[in-house]
Design a protein around this nucleic acid. Structure first.
Lengths: 239, 239
DNA sequence: ACTTAGGTTTAGGTTGTCCTAAACATAATG
DNA sequence: CATTATGTTTAGGACAACCTAAACCTAAGT
């Protein structure tokens, strides 16, 4: 199956493709060329080319016009990169004082250069964290992750009290805005009102009333607070 | 003079070339194609190609068959990379517990990916160090370095007492060996004997007698201990 | 002055990662 | 069922960074 043997180190772009494919695949469907292209901000044609290479390397399987799926090797490689990325994010924020909204870009570059040793030393210095600053779970050394199915804040019902578990979005300004509102992992939020026609959602956060749009609320993953509140279909994203 | 405009970020290879040229140039002569090729472990032909690119970018001047010299821009870029590298080495050893002989390789990869912000945060966390773990001076933010002319241990006279200032050599086993002997920046060493015909040098270090070869001693830069002891022609290397 | 040794450059090729434009496949619509 | 919209792939190219082999300069030694 594996045509060419796997090189010991994967290139930066290859790691990026695998991360994106992993993320796209998590909603159940295979990852499609155009979606990958969108995520990486490159042309679909370039993705087609890279997809052939990844398939040659045995990292993905590809059904033309039907999308791609990670193989075992591909999944392992994707999770390794994800672990690097998220531990770097933790370290940069907790030890080096990076802002919540600034870590992503830095980690994105470092994740391809950092050795296993560096990552593990950072993880040890942090006491082996299990979530990154945005609430994303950190895969273990041996490639295990638990990505719980969480509802988004947009799906929470009126008068419901929920706890923020994870915030998506790599966009720094939006992250900064959410932080200002007090919406970060661990925060307790009550839905005061949901305007009809996908109107703004009014929340009670940290003793103040705040309104946010549905699009933004859909980037915030929550869990029922007081008691257990059923599971939705929502799923996190990669950062 | 600058044909193409300088891109805002230089590629990893470009930074590596500049570092090597900076280092080769420090002995006064321009840097020659073959020397650059040796240092980077690539073919002279490839260096010729890159030299054209670097000259196009205005980072070096090139007299065919006569070697290359850094321009102001090139020097600034080289010192920026050197600063990154050495601060990374400091941080990795002092904060993350890297071994003396293991930091070089890791820093070598990270220096191309780390942002200005990361480097400055690390520098701040360390209290703006001025020397890396091997005793190499760290250029300031605005590109100043003082590389004092130091003698090597091989040049020290019998019965002379000297202080180790800097240890060259990126070779991990040799660095480890020197560390075992107690030969590291700051150490006080007395030359007990110098065997003739470039024979071994016997030293008194940390209350014990040790003998090392001339080649190794030439990698150790020292300064007169008790009083000021004249300046030699020796110069440090890049790590 | 000629040869030779050593260092340097050119010529031409490879690999990885991207691009645009054109061809092609699939699925939904009239 | 033919058309259209959408999504995917191929064709052909560019660029950075390497390579080997061959051509070329320079300086030194007969």
């Amino acid at each position: 199956m594996t045509a060419r043997p796997l090189p010991q180190t994967l290139s930066g772009p290859v790691e990026d493709y695998l991360k994106v494919i992993y993320d796209l695949e998590r909603v159940g469907q295979p990852a499609f060329t155009n979606h990958i292209a969108d995520r990486l901000a490159i042309s679909p044609a370039s993705v087609s080319g890279m997809v052939r290479r990844l398939a040659d390397l045995g990292l993905i399987t590809h059904e033309p016009y039907r999308g791609v799926r990670l193989t075992g090797d591909g999944r392992r490689a994707a999770l390794r990169t994800l672990r690097r990325h998220r531990i770097l994010e933790c370290y940069l924020t907790e030890v080096l004082g990076y802002a919540w909204d600034g870590v992503h870009v830095e980690a994105e570059r470092l994740e391809h250069a950092a050795s296993e040793e560096l990552i593990e030393r950072m993880a040890a210095a942090l006491g082996d964290p299990v979530h990154d600053p945005h609430g994303a779970p950190i895969p273990t050394r041996d490639g295990r992750v638990e990505e719980p199915m969480l509802r988004t804040l947009a799906e929470a019902g009126r008068d419901e009290q929920v706890r923020v578990r994870r915030v998506l979005d790599e966009d720094a300004p939006r992250l900064r805005y959410l932080a200002e509102l007090g919406i970060r992992p661990g925060a307790l939020v009550r839905v005061l009102d949901k305007a009809p026609f996908d109107g703004p959602i009014t929340l009670w956060v940290e003793g103040a009333s705040r309104a946010i749009g549905v699009a933004l609320a859909a980037q915030v993953f929550v869990e029922g607070a007081g008691g257990a509140t059923g599971a939705g279909a929502g799923v996190g994203g990669t950062e």
